[in-house]
């Protein structure tokens, strides 16, 4: 969870450029709908996990209610289009603004809560939104879901082929990563890390807790809603079980945690690992056993490497560099019999 290492940034730019070129070329190379579709799904989860990480990894609030923001984004874009004919491109922005406001409100009322209390509050909030999505049938058509018309055209973010969604997904991921990097290098980023490390000390240095946590929560929520609007236009059908359900919140968190909570690229990396693995397991073993292995992976990761794959790598590098045991040595060792 190191921060503000200009060397690391320059290094990542050198790597990022060829990677970006390769990513842009993918739809030209991968024409098989299954594989490209898998890639788009990876991009979406990478963006969602990166957005979640702003709230959970940077601000330290392990939210289990992010499906609510995802749902707000998906339903806002869909309903504005179906009811008022507003282009989902615009609907995406409206959804992001709505979710951002909701995120700010949730941030403002939960900032005092620590540990499990924060987790439970966000979980309850997510369930409230889910209940609303299921039962407010006049608006959402409940469990029946909403279908977006086929062939709405580029101006309506509805494409016949899936290649355009690759680029939109890529843009979304770039946006969330860009925002993450910008936050980390800004005043807000330093404040958030300071608050996470020691709230009393941060306050004594003039860091305003409420403002910082509200900002992080709002930004994270708005980006998550963008992911929701993307999902709606890509799948072109939404219902509560695919948008606001608790499992969506869990999956977002899972992806980010496997990759590396609090790191910049970890959550995106997590999607690259988790999503294809999930698909393979599902195809190979069926839904139930796949989820069992998923759960097992989650347990093993949080017990053995609580800061994820990337966190583990970073710690190793840090240990090699400083020649001293990292802070992590004190954590995690307490539980062994």
């Amino acid at each position: 969870m190191s921060l503000g290492q200009p060397n690391g940034l320059r290094w990542s730019l050198v790597v990022a450029l060829p990677v970006a070129v390769a990513l842009l070329a993918i739809p030209a190379v991968v024409t098989d709908v299954f594989w490209l579709g898998l890639g788009i799904t990876v991009l979406m989860w990478a963006a969602l996990a990166t957005a979640w990480n702003i709230s959970a990894g940077l601000a330290g609030g392990l939210s289990l209610g992010h499906a609510a923001y995802f749902g707000v984004g998906a339903y806002t874009a869909t309903l504005l289009f179906l009811r008022l004919g507003v282009s989902p491109w615009l609907g995406l922005l409206v959804g992001a603004a709505l979710a951002g406001a909701l995120g700010a409100a949730i941030g403002a009322i939960t900032f005092r809560l620590r540990g499990p209390f924060f987790v439970l509050a966000t979980l309850a909030f997510g369930i409230v939104v889910h209940i609303a999505a299921v039962n407010w049938r006049e608006l959402t058509r409940g469990a029946a879901g909403l279908l977006l018309p086929f062939g709405g055209g580029a101006q309506n973010m509805l494409f016949a082929g899936i290649a355009p969604y690759w680029y939109i997904g890529l843009g979304l991921l770039a946006l969330t990563l860009g925002v993450t990097v910008a936050i980390r290098r800004s005043q807000l980023g330093y404040y958030l890390v300071a608050l996470r490390e020691d709230e009393d000390a941060a306050r004594a240095l003039g860091v305003r807790v409420v403002r910082c946590k509200v900002a992080a929560s709002a930004i994270s929520a708005a980006l998550t809603a963008c992911g929701g609007a993307f999902y709606a236009t890509y799948i072109q059908y939404i219902d509560p079980s695919s948008t606001t359900q608790f499992e969506i919140s869990v999956q977002i968190a899972l992806v980010a945690i496997v990759g590396g909570l609090g790191t910049t690229l970890g959550p995106a990396l997590g999607a690259v690992v988790v999503v294809p693995l999930g698909e393979i397991l599902r195809a190979w073993l069926g839904g139930g056993p796949a989820l069992m292995l998923y759960a097992l992976m989650l347990i093993v990761i949080v017990l053995a490497a609580p800061y994820g794959v990337l966190g583990l790598l970073q710690r190793l590098v840090a240990r090699l560099r400083s020649g001293r045991g990292p802070r992590g040595a004190a954590q995690g060792s307490g539980g062994r019999a």
Binding site: L3, G4, E197, D200, A201
Partner: peptide, 29 residues
């Protein structure tokens, strides 16, 4: 103020610890 029971931001570098203090003066990063 300082704290008798020291409260460093353990995960941050020494420089970044001090930087947080300077930021609240309204300085840019």
């Amino acid at each position: 103020r300082t704290f008798q029971i020291v409260k460093p931001f353990g995960g941050l570098s020494v420089r970044d610890n001090v930087l947080v203090g300077a930021l609240t003066r309204g300085q840019s990063v």
